[in-house]
Amino acid sequence: MREDVVSSGLRVEGLSVEYAAKRGLGRTRGDTHKALADVGFILPTGQTLGVVGESGSGKTTLGHAVLRMTPVSRGRILWDGVDLATLSDRDLRPYRRQMQLVFQDPYEAMNPRMSIGRIIAEPLLLAYGLDRHARREQALRLLKQVGLDESLLGRRPRALSGGQRQRVTLARALATAPRLLVLDEPTSGLDVSLQARVLNLLRDLQTDKGLSYLFISHDLAAVAYIAQRLLVLFQGRVMEQGPTDALLRHPAHPYTAALLAAQPSAVPGRAPKDPAPAMNPVADPVPGACVYYQWCGKALPRCRMEAPDLTSLGADHLVACHYPGHETTSIH
């Protein structure tokens, strides 16, 4: 990437996050566990990138790494052309206001002894040092923005429903007028009716404010609703990425296809044809093989010998598979 190509929005290149591995059988000192390996993507202003994968795929780590909440081992995080990965904590501070995280479990992300008003207004105090009166005014405005009644201002988190709490965390994230939200499974704990409300709200906020979203979820249907582009992660590696519609209509990677097949579809009375793969999540990867090799139903000898690179499948669509399949999925 040349320095003169400065795009607005977020551009991540070769992002890796590694931890020192636990020492155990067959592992020697100095081994690392690659939570994320060489992840790259572009998120243009005002758009949504959906990040999908199972638990342990690195979704949450990716969200945290982009916000510099977890140490980055290698790679660049370009925000309007500035590499956030190299900034000191001090230099990073102005950028922190522009990027906010919305946690998966809103209850755990709130101090149970603080009122909703204080929870929402706290970032305003920290970031801008607003006085009490101005903070209250802003908190009211934010509350209204996420469709909550001002009577909630004095309540404690305990008194709110799950959907209301999730909207409170959203209001708090919006307090510093961010341009990017990292949404970590924002709807996974909610009933379908509340999920619909939160997803619609997110879409409206995006349209109104030109927000960019990094939307992390294992629910492909929710992602399909909100994201223009998708990034499929497995064990910290990008398996496939591209336009949402193309990816869901014609998944090229067997893992994407497996995720799709496992998705509860609107086709009644039809249990899945292929039993879902992945039974033993703790198996050590075969060195040099494709990371998905042990789970893949279509693996051939080459997949064991050689890990596939991320290659272009045309029109913005990348896949890391030696034998990308253009098969239609079982979901119509």
């Binding site: 619609n200 249907a221 579809s265």
Partner: peptide
């Protein structure tokens, strides 16, 4: 209220 795959484009 349930989103579909692929998305229909309309609001939930």
């Amino acid at each position: 209220a349930i989103p579909t795959i692929p998305a229909t484009g309309g609001r939930l």
